[in-house]
Amino acid sequence: MSNIVLKTEGLTKHYGGVHALENADFELLEGEHVAIVGDNGAGKSTFVRQITGVETRTRGKISFDGREVEFAGPLDAREAGMECVFQNLALADDLDVPSNLFLGREKIRFNLGPFSVLDRRAMRQATEEGLKRTGVKIPNLDNPIRNMSGGQRQCVAIARSASFARKLIIMDEPTAALGVQETAQVEEIIRTLKAQNIPLILVSHNLRQVFDLVDRIVVFRRGHIVASLKREETDGNDIVSYITGVKTQNEAAAYI
């Protein structure tokens, strides 16, 4: 029996009168890749924002890595070993790839407080290794991110998370803005993560992608988790029935 990496119980988020997320019970096992699907406004991104500490939940419990956690912000989550690739890429356009990868956790040669001297060679080397490990190909690491295509930028963002995530990676629509070939590259990275046994939560609209990549699919509808399905035991039509509310596993959500 694998260990549970992430577990939420009764996770709820209200924005004023809007009940964006209601009593979400969710579990993620070690090494497991889970997709979160659902219509727009189903609560997928809200769910991610509560887990990563970007927002403060209304109520409910979150356990991560065997401990109950109360992240004050994404930084706390990151320090706990949880990395998130957000929809809006958190990259600094004018910096090159190594600088972006190590932003906020630079390698230092001499410690002089704020004026510490950077160890640029070590960061470059670690970047090359990190990119190789995740299977990301970037032709010139010294180019500012600004000069890169959307796919390359997304790869940098993912590589950044992948090189530091020790326990969990969350990706919120990582391929939403990408072309076919770039999407394929991102999917390749996700397979590499699977091979390394790093757990992943993938928020996606793309059912083809979901069936290609993950072990389990969790369906959100109107703020409720309405289904948790093993990939082998379901198909596209089945998922769509859950997304649209034709079917449900969640009695509490059946009346909405």
């Binding site: 600094a92 910096l95 600088s99 704020p114 510490s116």
Partner: peptide, 14 residues
């Protein structure tokens, strides 16, 4: 060459 410089560019950039 320092953290100060790197962070300055990062803040101005995003």
């Amino acid at each position: 060459y320092t953290l100060y410089g790197k962070h300055s560019y990062a803040i101005g950039s995003n």
